[in-house]
Amino acid sequence: MANITNLEFITGFSKGNMERVRKYVQMFLEASAEGMPAIEKAHADKDWKTLKTAAHTLKSISGYMGMTDTQNLLKKMEENAATEKQLDDMPNDVSLLRQHLQQAEEELNGFLAQN
């Protein structure tokens, strides 16, 4: 399976300082651990406003972890929740997002263990 994360940007941004890279990776993992349950709860409650804001928060920071596909998925979810259109896609999108974030967590924890 191809990697979902790519730490090229964050490593360049940190000018190769691994302490900083580790800090940002940990912050992302914390945000992801907080964001995914918030999205799932908002989806179950059909609380589209909360889902929109939770997706918005994860959108930018997933880009910093090189997760382009996840970022595009979150953008779609944010827009659909904001406009309350294409809500039929939402169950699949939430499930796909969960898979993305689980894979990212495994990869990033692997990175933290090695660095």
Binding site: F13, S14, K15, R20, K23, Y24, M27, F28, A31, T57, S60, I61, Y64
Partner: peptide, 16 residues
């Protein structure tokens, strides 16, 4: 309100 954005921008500007 996003701690990661806050830290990244602070670190970047501090390095400037």
């Amino acid at each position: 309100d996003d701690p990661m954005q806050l830290d990244m921008l602070k670190d970047h500007l501090s390095a400037m």
